[in-house]
Amino acid sequence: MAQRIASPEDLKAVREKAQQDIDLRSGQKELRITVHMGTCGIAAGARDLLTVLMNELQQNQVTYVSVTQTGCAGLCDQEPMITITDKNGSTFRYGRLSKAKVGEVVRGHVLRGQPMVEYLIKI
């Protein structure tokens, strides 16, 4: 839920938050996280995952990750899903995530460089 803006400081905070959100997306980064936002993903909770993801990245001051959205990947039963792509082009697709699990993925895969094997989709 957005904070009520009652002072110039609050406004400054909104502005900085907006700029941080933009920074998350700009330029070439070491990792790219894609949230799948097809109808199936949205219905399964992908919007909430995106919110948690961006909050986790900002709280941990992660600057080497870009976040983007895409549509359905054709694995509707695995939604909500995210895909992490590293700078070598390797992709890690996580499925059936929850808000708690996506936090674990950020802390494990993004911060420590250890993919969360138990949440990866096995194809």
Partner: peptide, 15 residues
């Protein structure tokens, strides 16, 4: 629903 989060997510991931 959660319009602020929805708009913020759209604007920031689709610059």
């Amino acid at each position: 629903g959660e319009w602020p989060e929805t708009l913020a997510g759209m604007v920031s991931t689709r610059p």
